[in-house]
C-alpha cells in the first residue's frame, strides 16, 4: 500500500546533560528542568510520520530543537528515548555497521553551512559519498556528473568550493546528497546562510527537483514563508516539543496556540488558505447557479471569479455541493 510511512517517529526525546535518562518523561518546562537537573531537553516527546514522496517541514524559532531532531533521525545525535522507524525498522536498534549502511545508501543530509571539503574539487566533493562506500572511480565520477547536471553546475566540476558563491556551494551540497540516491533527504536550514534572492532561487530548485526525482524530504527551516512554500505538511516546534502539525492551510487557518498564531500573523492568509476555510452553507433563498470552484483552490486565485460573479460561487467536490462563497467572505478575509 502506498501509505506505509517512510519514517515513523514515536515519542522521541533528546536530552543533553548529565544523566539524561532521568529527564525523559518529565513535564517540567525546559527552564525548570535546566535549573533542577542541569539537563537541556532539546527534543521532548515528538511523534510524527513522513509519507512517501512528501516534503515534511519542521519549523520553529532558534533553539527550539529542530537541528537536534533532524540529527536524531540519522543518529548524528544519539536520541535519548523513543523509536525511529525507517521503512518499518527501528534505526535506534541498528548496530554500527547497519547504521553506516543506512547513511551510505538510504539517507542523505544537506547542511546549513554546506560542510564541503575545501581541498577537493566540486566533482570530488560530490563523489565523496560514493567514494567512501567504495564505488570505483569511473563509476562515481559518472554519477557525480549526472547529479551536477541535475543541479545546474555542469562546467564547474574542477572548481574548488571557495571559488563558488554560497548558492553554488549549496548546490554542491545538494548534489553530494543526491549522488548517493537516498530514499530520504534531510535538510537542516539549507538556505539560511544565503541571501534572499538566492534563497528564493534555491527554493524553486528544490520544488523542481522534488518534481523530477520525487524524493521524500524532511526540511528544517525557521522561515515560515519557506515552510509554506515547500511543505506538504508542517510540524511546528517550541522548546523541543511539538505544538502543531498539519498542512500549510491548517496551520495558518487554525493555529493551535498563541505561539503559532504569532508565527503566522504576518502571513497573507489569502495566499495560503483555500476556499474550504471561508465557504459557508448556502442560505435557503440563495440562487445556486453561480460558477463552480474546487474547495482546495487558494483564495487568492478565486478572488477574480468570486468578485466578478453576480451570484454566490458554489464550492463543489466530485459533484457534491460543499458550500458557497460570496464577495462578502472574500472581502472579510482580505480586510483582516
Amino acid at each position: 500500500m502506498k501509505d506505509q510511512p517512510v519514517l515513523d517517529v514515536r515519542g522521541l526525546w533528546k536530552v543533553f546533560g548529565p544523566k539524561p535518562e532521568r529527564a525523559v518523561g518529565s513535564t517540567l518546562s525546559r527552564q525548570e528542568l535546566k535549573e533542577r537537573t542541569g539537563c537541556v531537553a532539546a527534543v521532548r516527546d515528538v511523534s510524527f510520520t513522513v509519507r512517501p514522496g512528501e516534503v515534511f517541514v519542521v519549523m520553529g524559532l532558534s533553539g527550539s530543537g529542530k537541528s537536534t531532531l533532524v540529527r536524531c533521525l540519522t543518529r548524528l545525535v544519539e536520541p535519548t528515548a523513543g523509536e525511529i522507524l525507517f521503512d518499518g525498522a527501528d534505526i535506534r536498534q541498528a548496530d554500527e555497521r547497519r547504521l553506516r549502511e543506512l547513511r551510505r545508501h538510504r539517507l542523505a543530509m544537506v547542511f546549513q553551512h554546506f560542510g564541503l571539503l575545501p581541498h577537493r574539487c566540486v566533482l570530488d566533493n560530490v563523489a565523496y559519498g560514493l567514494e567512501i562506500r567504495g564505488s570505483a572511480r569511473p563509476e562515481r565520477y559518472k554519477r557525480a556528473r549526472e547529479v551536477l547536471e541535475l543541479v545546474g553546475l555542469t562546467g564547474f566540476e574542477n572548481s574548488y568550493p571557495d571559488q563558488l558563491s554560497g548558492g553554488m556551494q549549496q548546490r554542491v551540497g545538494l548534489a553530494r546528497a543526491l549522488a548517493v540516491d537516498p530514499d530520504l533527504l534531510l535538510f537542516d536550514e539549507p538556505f539560511s546562510a544565503l541571501d534572499p534572492l538566492i534563497r528564493r532561487e534555491m527554493q524553486n530548485e528544490i520544488i523542481r527537483l522534488h518534481h523530477e526525482v520525487g524524493k521524500t524530504m524532511v526540511f528544517i527551516t525557521h522561515d515560515l514563508s519557506e515552510a509554506l512554500k515547500l511543505g506538504d505538511r508542517i510540524l511546528i516546534m517550541r522548546d523541543g516539543a511539538l505544538v502543531q502539525m498539519g498542512t500549510p492551510d491548517e496551520v495558518v487557518g487554525a493555529p493551535a496556540d498563541d505561539y503559532v498564531r504569532d508565527f503566522v500573523s504576518d502571513v497573507p492568509r489569502s495566499h495560503v488558505l483555500t476556499l474550504r476555510w471561508i465557504m459557508r452553507e448556502a442560505l435557503p433563498d440563495e440562487p445556486l447557479d453561480g460558477p463552480e470552484l474546487a474547495p482546495d483552490l487558494v483564495i487568492r486565485e478565486a478572488v477574480h471569479t468570486v468578485l466578478s460573479a453576480d451570484r454566490p460561487v458554489r464550492v463543489v467536490r466530485e459533484g457534491e455541493l460543499l458550500g458557497v462563497v460570496t464577495s462578502a467572505e472574500i472581502l472579510e478575509m482580505i480586510a483582516r
Binding site: L76, R100, E101, F111, G115, Y128, G129, I132, R133
Partner: peptide, 14 residues
Amino acid sequence: SPVTLEASSSLGAT
C-alpha cells in the same frame, strides 16, 4: 571544522 566532519559522517564515513 565540525560542520565538515558531520557532513562526512552523515554520508556514512567511518
